[in-house]
Structures are given as structure tokens and as C-alpha cells.
Amino acid sequence: MEPSSNGSFNLRRMRRKRVGLILAGVLFLATIFGIVVLVTLLVDVVLTSVPWLDGQFLGSLPSRNPGEAGIQSALVGSLWLMGLTALISVPLGVASALYLEEYAQDGWFLRLIQVNIANLAGVPSVVYGILGLALFVRFAALGNSLLSGALTLSLLILPIIIISTQEALRSIPSGIRESAYALGATRWQVIYSHVLPMAAPGIMTGVILALSRAIGETAPLILVGALTFVPFVPQGALDQFTALPIQIFNWTARPQDEFRGLAAAAIVVLMILLFTMNLTAILLRNYFEERRAGA
């Protein structure tokens, strides 16, 4: 089995093999480390939350008495925020991306915008909170309302939506565009009939991932004045509000142990919400891909 050695090679077969095995082990440990930490966290949170997770918890307003406290106002607040944020950011983001990709002439101005969008995606969310406070709460006099919060979150996720939409648009083979133009289509007909439908799954995925980021944001909402104690359910876009991350933040800050259980329960609700959103993204993408294939 030992390969013949003619003297010019020092094969060191065992040593090389050992290095390979050690490396594989290190890589495996690196993977496992993250998973173990996450699973521990999840198990801990879920176990702590179990006694508190019930219909009463979902359907009650916050209270000083842990036994009566619930997340109804925070949950409804978060759902309102998501709805409004999606309504504002998706049309704006998709429209911007369409303009930048399909209409804008290449040049220094376009490149400047592109660089700025990429940078904006990396700006800390608290900075958007300050902007929201100055622009929407004070200047536009919207107060610390759901609309202010949604507008702020929209600014926060617009760069993500624009960039992912641009990527989706860029991934469409140029042959599709060219052959549509060659049939005498106008730019808008090409976009509407071919580019948008083909980019839709990518756009959806980007939008939902962006919204998933927005739903967990706390800092900007605190700055635009989301309340920590909201004993009512918001009825409209101009109402004051709280949201799940803020409710969680509030409960974890309390001294009593029971509130920690409540916080855990709220975390589980937030995660289920997130999971549902991501699942929707996947289902939507599959649906569009199937429709593309079938019709």
C-alpha cells in the first residue's frame, strides 16, 4: 500500500491526513457552536414562556399585575406597523429600483445614488430614529403615532428593498427584454408583462426579509416615541402605539420574576410572527415560480 518513494518526495501522508481531519473537526465545531447557542436560547425562552402563553395573554392589555398582563396592544401595534410600513416602503422601493435599473441613464449621478443607497443600508437604525423624530414627529407634526413609526421604519428598510429589487431585476436574462422590445413593445409594456412578473419572486423575498428586519426594530421606535405602557388598542394610523420589541424591552426591565416569563412569552409570539412572515415569503416565491412554469 505504501507508495514507492524515489527520494524526491517527502509524502508525510499521515501528517497531511491528520491536518485534514483536524480542520474538518474545527469547521464542524464552528457550525455546532452557533446552533447550540441558538437552540439553548430557544429552549430556555420557550420553557420560560410556557406557563404564560395562553389566550388570556394574547387578548389582554398590559397591566401592573403580571397575572392579568397581556400583549394585545403590542401585537396589534406591531401588525399595524408592519401593514403601514409595507404599504409605504414597497411601492416606493420597487418604484425606485425600477427607475434606477430600467430608466436612469448611466453616469456619475446614478453611481452616486447607488453608492448612497448601499451606505444607507448600513446606517444604524437609531440614526433613522433620530431622523424620524425630527422629520415626522416634529416637522410633519404627526406626533408619536403609528404613522410616524411606520414612516421611520420604511426609511430604514427602503435601501434593503431597493437593493434586493434591483438584484431581482438584474437577474432577468437580457434576451427576454430584447425580444420583447423587438416585437415593438414600449418600455413600460416590457416591464409590466415580463420584467416585473419574472422579478416578482425575488422582490417578494427581499420585501419580506426587509419587513422581518423592521418588525424586530426597537431603537428607532423608542426615539419616535412609541409608548411602553399602552392600555388600549390602536384604532387608526394616527393613534399612539407600542410594539412587541418595546413591550419585551419594558418587561425585561422590571424587577419581578413574573415579568421575565411574560417577556419570554412575548418573544415566542414575535418569533412565530417572524416565522410566519418568512414562510409566507417562501410560499409566495414557490407560487410565483410555479405560475411562471405553468402559465
Binding site: 436574462p173 434576451g175 427576454i176 430584447e178 425580444s179 420583447a180 422590445y181 423587438a182 416585437l183 415593438g184 413593445a185 415580463h194 419574472m198 411562471r292 412554469a293 402559465a295
Partner: peptide, 16 residues
């Protein structure tokens, strides 16, 4: 382009 049509090198039907 409506009067002067074009067929491309790679077959590129619309995904419809």
C-alpha cells in the same frame, strides 16, 4: 421594431 422584427441567436421564449 414592429415593422422590422428580430429573431435572436439563443432561443429566448418568454416563460409563458
Amino acid at each position: 421594431r414592429r415593422r422590422v422584427g428580430m429573431v435572436f441567436q439563443k432561443p429566448n421564449p418568454f416563460p409563458k
